[in-house]
């Protein structure tokens, strides 16, 4: 799915502790969060927002600005939250 990445960064050391969770029901697929993500970890498909947990640094910029609060920090590994 992430064939767009040119380089894959080292796995974040906090990766297993918490992660960004997307509520696909709330998300309006507007792409605003994509524009603020420093490591380019978000990608908007037509009607699906995808996140690359490997490169996400958990900076929470996307969580803070989402116009409809469709993102939140969740405990545990990404696999624990289906998205």
């Amino acid at each position: 799915m992430f064939n767009l990445r040119k380089t894959t960064r080292a796995r974040n050391s906090n990766a297993l502790l918490h992660h960004v969770a997307i509520d696909q029901d709330l998300c309006n697929w507007c792409g605003a969060c994509v524009s603020v993500c420093p490591p380019d970890s978000l990608f908007l498909y037509e009607e699906w927002l995808a996140i690359d947990h490997e490169t996400c640094t958990r900076c929470e910029r996307c969580v803070k600005m989402c116009p409809v609060h469709a993102l939140h920090m969740a405990a545990g590994s990404p696999e624990s939250t289906p998205s």
């Binding site: 767009l4 040119k6 507007c30 792409g31 605003a32 994509v34 524009s35 603020v36 993500c37 420093p38 380019d40 990608f43 908007l44 910029r61 803070k64 600005m65």
Partner: peptide
């Protein structure tokens, strides 16, 4: 558009401060 990734891939930094979004 807003979600532009091309500029970024080309090295033209395009991440706004949250106060500029």
């Amino acid at each position: 558009g807003t979600e532009s990734q091309l500029a970024r891939w080309a090295g033209l930094k395009s991440i706004p401060a949250l106060s500029d979004l």
